[in-house]
Write a protein that binds this DNA or RNA. Sequence first.
DNA 1: CCTTGTGAAGCTGTTCACAGCC
DNA 2: GGCTGTGAACAGCTTCACAAGG
Lengths: 221, 221
Amino acid sequence: MTILPTDLSSVDIPDATVARLPVYLRTLAAFADRKISTCSSLELAEAAGVNPAKLRKDLSHLGSYGVRGVGYEVEYLRYQIAQAIGQTQNRNVLIAGVGHLGQALAGYRGFTTRGFTVAGLVDADSARIGTVVEGLTVHDIADINDVVDAQSISIAVITTPAEAAQRVVDGLVTAGVTSILNFAPTLLSVPEHVDVRKVDMSIELQILAYHQQRRTKVVDA
Amino acid sequence: MTILPTDLSSVDIPDATVARLPVYLRTLAAFADRKISTCSSLELAEAAGVNPAKLRKDLSHLGSYGVRGVGYEVEYLRYQIAQAIGQTQNRNVLIAGVGHLGQALAGYRGFTTRGFTVAGLVDADSARIGTVVEGLTVHDIADINDVVDAQSISIAVITTPAEAAQRVVDGLVTAGVTSILNFAPTLLSVPEHVDVRKVDMSIELQILAYHQQRRTKVVDA
DNA sequence: CCTTGTGAAGCTGTTCACAGCC
DNA sequence: GGCTGTGAACAGCTTCACAAGG
């Protein structure tokens, strides 16, 4: 397969843009629900909470899907963005750690509508292994390899305690998983080709606390 | 109160740095647990997963707390960072929405060690109101004003369904809350002086999916 | 001699402002 | 006329490389 210079699907979209495309997609879905068939960059940007120039520049990385003087066709743009971020195919997700957080994610409806299927649950606690959560049997984390294979897992979510996370990730990497979303508050070491993203609840609170402290300090001055 | 130009507590720390300071703090805590009393920028940076030059520049925004040729004293640096991000005082947190996610956060031990106390739980579901979760009684979301006042809430976490989020936030803003962590997948509109941070699980998965798709595309080429 | 602290360079992302086009 | 697409200016962050200093 040869990629032509004009093939936009091969150029890499800036990270900041990639992070916003799902927001636009969600906003467009809301427009479609409200039977809005066309919108301007201003309308879409306001509903998505971004600057209109930024929205247009973001979209320009995918191609030229608007009409000057008119705006964007909602369904068409929706399709193009979905295409660009690869939301056209379903992906099976494994959740490692079936505590409250794992269960919250297992039952989250928002995943399904974005092309993700929670297809595997594993845990280390023998009291949880074998139980059924959200229609799925919880498997032993020791069998992680089998679960990844059997369910063709492409993304894993770590919701184990921090101490267990690295061990679980090592198992996932061995099993061939290359995309990991980490909720455990610890640094994971993985090979070059594995992509890890981190969500850290306390850090978010700490950032809010810093800004709050700063606001009150400024008032003092 | 007058702030002198030399008072570093008044200069604003770059956002990117603020987001990493909690990571350094956590890394230093791990060092302290292992009885390490001194460390170089290289050691700390590696354990925290950042470039050493970035670490040093980050720390330089707080002041000059290292010793050339030697490194940093773990406990001293820990104290200085905690001071800078305002982790010296406790903050009471309210969780709005006591589903699985809300319960996961209510029971999360990591908050306590970082100076956050979950001091209030509210929900709209009458089946949940009055029940006790993690030692706290769940209150009616309609009484949010009273809960915020009685518990001196300074930060609120939204773990309600997306449809309810804006209504809840309006109530919180009226009650005087100025820092909000939003887990609901929706854009919140708040007055200027209110600080909102957003955590969106599906967007994280969508970003991972994009990179995964891209990796396989490149292999094709 | 060793490691910090920091100017300077380079890179990424944002915003402006307008040319291009329907 | 009006809105998109984009070069150019700008702002912020990262990294380098080295002077400063224990």
